[in-house]
Every structure is written in structure tokens, then in C-alpha cells.
């Protein structure tokens, strides 16, 4: 399998491995969710993962920061293998940002406090510095004026952008997105995708579970199609969309692209 690093607007892929999954398997009880997953992510890659509901996409990316535990195989993130060792897991989580479908903002804290919490407590950053950084990223996601509101007072799109800013404040090396736009109204999807495009253009390594195929075409350098816990097909977006090889992929694409 060779991956053509496709240059888009100066987004470049280096040959430094950031995430490596080797023969990863996972079960929920008897149910085999992930089957022999092999995946190597290089620095600067923008990978879009798609597939039918229940195919294991969320489980796959949640294994990368150990929100889910895998039972067989190896996952190596930034040179560290994920094991039981909670200290190592916490170290990896500091370097790996995650954005959830339902935002998971902390409702009892203001937007600014949501963003500064982890830098202050996890990185021991002085409060003032953390606030400066938070404001910087809130500007990047275009909502600096909401900094002192509570998450419950924001629209879904704004909340998701806060969630992105919150992750970025930890200065992560990899960002994981689990269907970041699928809980949003159509008019808010674009504002979140725009922020994600900016992020991709800044060179961030991203793994994105999404069905936004426009986004995949625009920024992804690789699209992965999963079904029944397996990687069925992966390719660069042009090839993937215009010339899918597997019948499952064809069927899936015909259903979502109309």
C-alpha cells in the first residue's frame, strides 16, 4: 500500500510516523468491533474516515487516545505504546486533541475557563498566559466575543468551535474528530468545517470521522472506508470518490452522494 502524499494548498506530509496501529482488535463482549486494523498516520496527514453506522469508526479513533481499550495488537502514538500505564496514557492525551459529536464542553465553566482549564492544571501554565493562548485560539475559531459566556448560552456551531479551541489550547500534535458536525443544523455545519479547513491548512495532523464528503475532497489526503470493523478501502480522495474499487464502497458512496 503506498500513500501518495497529495499537496493541497501547501499542506505537506512528512515521513514521520505519528500514529501506528498494528493488527488492532477489539471486542465488546462477544461482538468483534475492530478486526485486524492496520493504520499508519504520518505527520501532517488529514485522514477522513467514513463508513456505515456501527462500522466501528468511533471506536477506532477513540482507541487512539485510549478512551476505549483495545484487546489485541499494538497502538503506538508519538513513539509511545498504549498500555495499562495511566501516566503514559495521560501524557499521550496531552498531545492528542479530541473533538466530540456532542461537544462535551463543561457547562459549569465559561468558554474561557473551558479553554484554560487543561493548560493551567495539566501543563501548569500561569493563568495569564493560558488566557492569552485561549483568546488567541478563540479568535482563530472566530468567537473571541463569547469568551465570558457559558456553553449553554451558545449555539451548537459556536459550542463546537469552542470545543476545537479548547483542544488547540493544549497545543496538540494530532487532532481527532468524531463526527464533529453531525449534531449540528445545516447552517452551522459550514462555520465548523471552515475552522477545520483552516486547521488543516495550518499543517495539523487530523483524523476525522465524518460524512461531509465536500470536506474530504477539499482537505483530506487520504479517505478510509470502514465496514464491519474493518478497513475496506483507502485511497486519495479523487480516486476514492471517482473510482472506488470495492463493491461495498460503491454501494456506500451511491447512498450518500445521491
Amino acid at each position: 500500500m503506498s500513500i501518495e502524499a497529495q499537496e493541497k494548498k501547501g499542506m505537506s506530509v512528512s515521513d514521520e510516523v505519528v500514529v501506528e496501529m498494528i493488527d488492532v482488535n477489539k471486542w465488546y463482549g462477544d461482538f468483534h468491533v475492530l478486526r485486524d486494523i492496520n493504520l499508519t498516520v504520518y505527520r501532517g496527514e488529514r485522514i477522513v474516515i467514513c463508513g456505515p453506522s456501527g462500522s466501528g469508526k468511533s471506536t477506532l479513533i477513540r482507541c487512539i487516545n485510549r478512551l476505549e481499550e483495545h484487546q489485541a495488537g499494538k497502538i503506538i502514538v508519538l513513539g509511545t505504546e498504549l498500555t495499562e500505564d495511566i501516566k503514559k496514557i495521560e501524557e499521550i492525551r496531552r498531545e492528542v486533541g479530541m473533538v466530540f459529536q456532542h461537544f462535551n464542553l463543561f457547562p459549569h465553566l465559561t468558554v474561557l475557563e473551558n479553554c484554560t482549564l487543561a493548560p493551567i492544571w495539566v501543563k501548569r501554565m500561569p493563568k495569564k498566559e493560558a488566557e492569552e493562548i485561549a483568546m488567541h485560539f478563540l479568535e482563530k475559531v472566530r468567537i473571541p466575543d463569547q469568551a465570558h459566556k457559558y456553553p449553554g448560552q451558545l449555539s451548537g456551531g459556536q459550542q463546537q468551535r469552542v470545543a476545537i479551541a479548547r483542544s488547540l489550547c493544549m497545543n496538540p500534535q494530532v487532532m481527532l474528530f468524531d463526527e464533529p458536525t453531525s449534531a449540528l443544523d445545516p447552517e452551522m455545519i459550514k462555520e465548523v468545517l471552515d475552522v477545520m479547513v483552516d486547521l488543516a491548512e495550518s499543517g495539523m495532523t487530523m483524523l476525522v470521522v465524518t460524512h461531509e464528503m465536500g470536506f474530504a475532497r477539499q482537505v483530506a489526503n487520504r479517505v478510509i472506508f470502514m465496514d464491519q470493523g474493518q478497513i475496506v478501502e483507502q485511497n486519495e480522495p479523487e480516486e476514492f470518490f471517482t473510482n472506488p474499487k470495492s463493491d461495498r464502497t460503491k454501494l456506500f458512496l451511491s447512498q450518500i452522494l445521491h
Partner: peptide, 19 residues
């Protein structure tokens, strides 16, 4: 999701619980 949000940021168990 609150637990996951906190964990994904690298908070320790006690930080997650207390904060």
C-alpha cells in the same frame, strides 16, 4: 461525555473529579 471530555484533555482522575 463530561468524563470523556476531561480525560481527552489529559486531566488526571482527581483533577477530573474535583474540577
Amino acid at each position: 461525555g463530561q468524563y470523556e471530555g476531561a480525560q481527552a484533555l489529559g486531566l488526571t482522575y482527581w483533577q477530573m473529579m474535583l474540577l
